[in-house]
Design a protein around this nucleic acid. Structure first.
Lengths: 244, 244
DNA sequence: AAATCGATATCGTAG
DNA sequence: CTACGATGTCGATTT
């Protein structure tokens, strides 16, 4: 396809607020928060209806150059080729893409109001424990969630069957030493504020070796709890299994 | 375009190792590290030559569903529509995309060996200071980089014109209280190990208000230093300005 | 394989 | 606007 023809497609697509797809040979330069140069190669260029722009190389799932929605796009043909200049004010950034060959250029009117539902985030794990505290320990009662301690928040504050305060820190991935230190800091603050030493429970799908030994030293308890288990609990409770 | 026709395109593209672009109406379900459901809408589906797969909605620069390179892709037509099942073994994940309508399906042979050069990362900022320590302070001499302190690393260890030890911590973004705490921890460790109180310099493009007052209290010095300045220094030193 | 750290991270939320 | 945590974070590097 001719560069002039492609430019016309791009201008029309931009004017109508369409999603534009260009396949071709191009190089790019970015300057802003960082600075990058990408030499020439065959790539896929997408300009979306919200004026976000991205280019994909033929391998790897991530885009290589991009600008988020709301940039000002200027397109013109120079001696270099079809030049797209994408400017953003805050933060000041510029992405300059030079297309030297076009294999295909087309735009589409895409309508997408599909709801996106995601489960088994840390938030969902918390919801599962609040729904079914017994999975952490029989007899556990939830007292408070998101309690502010200093300038941080404790995931869950509870009381065990013997009346002792329990701090629960949830992690959706393998817990690290950093996570152990975090819950110990919370415990120190809670003891200061409430005058009683709380139990500390780290709920995570697994525990790193170093974190495990640190746990022993610092008297932090570990409860194996995975995002998947949380999802299953929530599914049973709320009938979310229709998504499986 | 017919679903059967689109399936043929996809199968051919997969067989030839091409980059496939499908524009159409689809919905998707993901299960693996998390679980998600995306209701029907018009989207762009890309299967790359390395068999990474991604879908884009018509807004926002990020992909909504994806699988990294090396998944096993199974495509077939069922009563639901054109179904793509993308399986990964480690971690166990499955992405199931159901295409109900196809507006366009094409594949391309894309060759992209273009070199990608990126500057002004934290690493480049460190290189700039090592090259030109004077930009931090006249008379500064670099002693060591990446010195291990406990289980962490100090960006730069130096000595000032009066012979005092200087710890430099580099941040490419606005420095926060957390960063101030980090350099103070390093200083404590250095004092323990070397028996001398070091100066502490935080080199970053800006400083949050809270971090500024924390700096005063904890005697941490602040040196304004941006990725862009680092880039300019390195450009002059190494002739990298050909990229601008 | 596990852990750590940086990223043009992005994104949401609370203050 | 700023700060901070979560992310299917991803990706590279080191142990």
């Amino acid at each position: 396809m001719d560069l002039a023809e492609a430019l016309e497609k791009i201008m029309s697509g931009l004017g109508y607020g369409r999603t534009i797809i260009v396949v071709g040979r191009m190089h790019a330069h970015y300057a802003g928060r960082s600075t990058s140069w990408l030499a020439e190669g065959d790539r896929l260029l997408i300009i979306k209806s919200d004026k976000s722009i991205l280019t994909h190389r033929p391998t790897g799932y991530e885009s290589v150059n991009w600008q988020p929605p709301g940039v000002v796009i200027n397109a013109q043909i120079t001696e270099e080729g079809l030049v797209l200049e994408c400017n953003r004010k805050s933060p000041p950034e510029i992405l300059r893409i030079v297309i030297t060959e076009v294999y295909s250029a087309e735009y589409y009117r895409l309508v997408d109001n599909g709801e996106f539902i995601i489960h088994a985030r840390e938030e969902d794990m918390k919801a599962a424990i609040i729904n079914s505290p017994d999975i952490v320990e029989p007899g556990l009662r939830i007292v408070e969630t998101e309690r502010r301690i200093g300038d941080e928040y404790i995931d869950i504050l509870a009381v065990d069957s013997s009346g002792q305060i329990v701090i629960i820190e949830i992690k959706r991935k393998r817990a690290t030493c950093r996570d152990v230190e975090q819950i110990v800091n919370y415990a120190t603050q809670v003891e200061k504020e409430l005058g009683r030493k709380p139990r500390k429970i780290l709920a995570a799908p697994s525990l790193s070796k170093e974190a495990a030994s640190l746990n022993t030293v610092l008297r932090v308890e570990y409860k194996c709890f995975s995002p998947r288990l949380a999802y299953e609990i929530l599914s049973k409770k709320k009938g979310l299994d229709r998504f499986l």
